[in-house]
Structures are given as C-alpha cells and as structure tokens.
C-alpha cells in the first residue's frame, strides 16, 4: 500500500506514526527487524536522514531498539504496542466525537449509525465497491 505524506505536517512525525501503525496492525511483529534506513527511505520516498531521525526518536521513545551493527528492531514488549493501539484508538475516537458533536445528533442516532456502518463494513470486507455503496445508502437514508 502506498504511503502518502501530508506535506503540511512534519514528515518525521508522519513516518513515526506510520511505523507505529504498521506495528499495531501486525505488519511488523514484536522483535521484528525493521528495514535498513536506506531501504526505508526508498520505500517512503524521503531523505535517509529523515528516516535516521525517525529511528532515533522511536528508540528514545523505547518503541524500537537499535543493536549496533545489526539494525533496528521493533520492541519485544507487546504492551508497548498495545499502548500505541490504545493511543491511536483514542485519537480516532476523539476525532469522531468532535466531528459528530458538531452535527448535534442524539446518542440514539449515533448508536444506530454506528451499528449500521459497522455491519456494512464487516459485511463487505475486501469488497470496496459494495462498502462504498453501503455507506452511501446510509447517508441518503438519513
């Protein structure tokens, strides 16, 4: 999957988030070796120096571990990854709540919407088109 950068935000932060998200999704397992700085730079299409900075910052946070001469590894500590999942989840929920409260919906309406959306998401897993239609129907239904 192509990773798109948002040029309006610091690039190193976005890459840090991307690596954490990948670990959360299980693309990088605990203790797994990360690509070298150069390979990661090529993949993300950014300056290797930026990746070096990302690895440094992640190491300081304790999310990755750099072993001299061997490379960088995702932390073995799965609770650390869990903590990131919670953090991302909290952020996403906060964004959702912020947006939804602007619309002045009742709790009941929100609940209904959530269950409806959830059904269409899980029902059409991997079938992008039907998901899109499903979502669309919900919107027009309102």
């Amino acid at each position: 999957m192509a990773f798109l950068l948002d040029p309006t935000r610091p690039i190193y932060l976005q890459i840090m988030e991307e690596i954490k998200k990948r670990a959360v999704r299980g693309l990088y397992r605990p203790g797994e070796q990360l690509p070298s700085v150069r390979d990661m730079a090529k993949e993300m299409e950014v300056n290797p120096n930026t990746i070096a900075r990302v690895y440094r910052e992640l190491e300081q946070e304790g999310f990755i571990e750099t072993r001299r001469g061997r490379g960088s590894f995702i932390t073995e500590d799965s609770s650390r990854i869990e903590a990131e999942r919670t953090k991302f989840g909290r952020d996403a929920t906060q964004r959702f709540i912020r947006d939804i409260t602007e619309l002045d919906m009742t709790d009941k309406q929100i609940q209904d919407m959530l269950s409806l959306l959830k059904r269409s998401f899980s029902g059409a897993d991997g079938k992008d088109k039907s998901t899109g239609e499903g979502t669309h129907n919900v919107c027009t239904g309102e």
Binding site: P7, R9, N47, T50
Partner: peptide, 30 residues
C-alpha cells in the same frame, strides 16, 4: 520530501531559513 533544511532566497537575500519539519510545525503548512 527530500530536503531537511531549507532557505528561501529572494532577490539575492535569504528571507527565511530553518529545518523543513520545524517550519511545517511552526507555520502549520507545507
């Protein structure tokens, strides 16, 4: 995506300089 530090040259003078990511953070734009 490549540059780490930048400066803007305008009519032979540097009008703004700094680390790219810091500038993005400060100005909130690309």
């Amino acid at each position: 995506e490549f540059v780490e530090d930048v400066f803007y040259l305008k009519k032979g003078k540097i009008v703004l300089s700094g680390e790219a990511d810091r500038l993005r953070e400060e100005k909130g734009t690309s």
